[in-house]
Design a protein around this nucleic acid. Sequence first.
DNA 1: GACAAATGTAATCACTACGGTTACTTACTA
DNA 2: TAGTAAGTAACCGTAGTGATTACATTTGTC
Lengths: 140, 140
Amino acid sequence: MAVHVLAVLAYKEGDRVTSAFLAGSVNTNPVIIRRLLLSLQRARLVDTCKGAGLGSRLNRSPGRINLAEVYRAVEEVEPFASPSRKPNAACPVGHCIREELDRVFASAEKAMEHDLEKTSLADVINAVKASGACGKKRAV
Amino acid sequence: MAVHVLAVLAYKEGDRVTSAFLAGSVNTNPVIIRRLLLSLQRARLVDTCKGAGLGSRLNRSPGRINLAEVYRAVEEVEPFASPSRKPNAACPVGHCIREELDRVFASAEKAMEHDLEKTSLADVINAVKASGACGKKRAV
DNA sequence: GACAAATGTAATCACTACGGTTACTTACTA
DNA sequence: TAGTAAGTAACCGTAGTGATTACATTTGTC
């Protein structure tokens, strides 16, 4: 959803866009979009202003925003879930497996982010435009 | 949790272990373990038998089981969530961004799995044993 | 064959996360 | 000053998941 919002902002090339408009494209509620924009603001990816005729726009060119940044801006929970209860400390395996798995999972997440870094917002926009142009579905 | 269970089985080196014992190490309920074991059975990672004195054991040596296999055996939902509602098809961005993101996310997940492949269950066991031996906490 | 042990499985509950919705406040432009 | 748009709080519904209980089923041992 975050990528979708940023893609629309990129598509509008610097024009300010309201949360209501973005909500229309994502097909959700403006409040959802505003909550999402707060995270993107914290990451300095977008610039948002209150007031009549205003709204949000990208803070950088789409070519200088990659999807790993978007992921880090939005995703605050770890992709690998650990059980809520602590393992049995009396078990030789249980009492120290957590820290080892944390290491392995951090590495895996980093590998994933490194792959996401290869794709910029501009790449996404280009793919979208190409897909629209090659006639899979005729854009309005 | 799946890795924890498999690590205990590896630690027991071929002996059959009951779901009750595994639940004790993970600090959860035997039923949770049994449901997890069903997934691991489907992936041919463990071999489980009903009956007095039986239980589960690894189907392969720990060195021949990597964490990517465990991940695929257990995780059936995509790590990247897509919004429940379809995007607005009338929007030039919305009507085709999904398929492009599916491509990017599939690549990122693959990169993550590729990193997980580098770690085997034997690696986890060795780290656990080393951590226990170096005296951070004295095992029982 | 009877009994005990262990898994398979269904039903239910609680907790959490997240999107959705409404309503109200705050800030900015015209 | 009026209108527009974001900020934000409160609440609801849904989905996922671990936890728990209960029961059927299978298997090994005496």
